[in-house]
Simulated assay, not measured.
Amino acid sequence: MNRRSVDQHAAAVAELLRPLLELPTESVPLRAALGRFLPTDVVSPIDLPNFQNSQMDGYAVESAAIQSVPVTLPVAGVIAAGLTDLPALPRGGALKIMTGAPIPAGADCIVPVEDTTAADGMVTVLRSRRTGEFVRNAGSDVQKGRPLVTAGTLLGARHVAALAAAGLTEVAVRRRPRVAVITTGTELVAAGTPLLPGQIYDSNGTALASSFEANGADVVRVAHSDDDTAAMTALLDECAATADVIVTSGGVSMGDFEVVKETLLPLGGHFGPVAMQPGGPQGLSVYNGVPVLSFPGNPVSTLVSFEVFARRPIRAISGLPALPRQTRTLTADISSVPGKRQFVRGKFTENGIEPMRGTGSHLVAGLAWADALISVPAEHTVVPAGVDVEILVL
């Protein structure tokens, strides 16, 4: 059986998922928009600020009245922020004004309170001001009809704040990819259930759901199938009705109870080895029009498969930024199997990255201690300490 390289299989996964790069938009409340991808510009429905207002606590005056200072003016009233019944400025007078309050008719500048003295209903202006000083003009932040947040933005708190300031209550964002996870194996039982001899807890469902959610997907279903093709088919039917992507773990190797392969191979699925360790057995299918990624069932193999094959394309679909390629200096030698790309668990140190002991694909607790996967090319059997190696940060 022909063995794909890691790069060949990664390209096949990316191609299978490529149509999902054009997911439609959906409107979400602003409180739910954080971290979402904006596919089109959002234009402001109003000027920001929406009215001319004061930049300072002080006095609204006519600049022509304060060109010769000091000058004492009568204070005709107080304008607080939020005042809607606005008095006009009496000629030759002043109105006390708070920051953010609207500028009254007749006033063209603000004298900050620190440039004045006040007593007995009068204010003495100690420094002259020009027309427009300390006045925020309507639209000086953004004008009505102009872009408020631009297409391609991953919405952060500052963007949501701008949308809220313009009075918007919801925003159209790219819909997140909907992922269904199916774990397989009669030996798996749910956490919280007493284990019988030969049984193990199902960690893959939680691991895959968490991995996809952490990279921008909505996980719409986490289910489990035993080693029965009829049960597997029923689950695939249910998941295909709601999901954009189905991900399975287990049932893809060369054993007698490979339920995923037995179900999907007759429907045109591709199953075969990839030249990597861990995570060699892989499968790609389409079920009722929905792409299916099939990973091996050993817990470490499942998580490594996600990191190597699914993380980048699912982030692209979600609109999240691409992960940068990273390298670290290896602090100890690594011996590798020839002909397979190895993904060795590693831990960061002050001097680089240290390979961890234990390579078994069942060592899920050991993976929890790792910071990254060290990628060892298939043509290398030894990588000496001191060499810069490519890593996948976990």
Rank of each mutant, 00 (worst) to 15 (best):
R3P: 00
V6C: 13
V6R: 14
A10M: 08
L16K: 08
T25A: 13
V28G: 02
V28Q: 00
V28D: 01
R31P: 00
V43C: 11
V43A: 13
D47Q: 05
Q52L: 09
A60S: 06
V61D: 04
A64V: 06
V71F: 04
G82F: 07
G93L: 05
K96L: 10
G100F: 08
I103W: 02
A105L: 12
A105M: 11
A105T: 12
V113I: 14
G121L: 07
T131Y: 13
E133A: 11
D141L: 13
R146T: 11
L148I: 03
G152N: 07
G152F: 07
A172F: 03
P177Q: 09
A191N: 09
Q199W: 13
Q199P: 01
Q199V: 10
I200A: 12
S203I: 07
T206L: 12
S210I: 00
S211W: 06
A214C: 03
H224Y: 06
D237Y: 03
F257A: 12
E258M: 12
G268P: 00
G272K: 00
P273Y: 14
Q277R: 15
G280K: 14
G283Y: 06
V300Y: 10
E307F: 12
P313C: 08
I314G: 02
L323K: 07
A332K: 13
V337K: 15
F343S: 05
G346E: 04
F348G: 04
E350G: 14
G358K: 08
S361W: 03
E379H: 12
V393P: 00
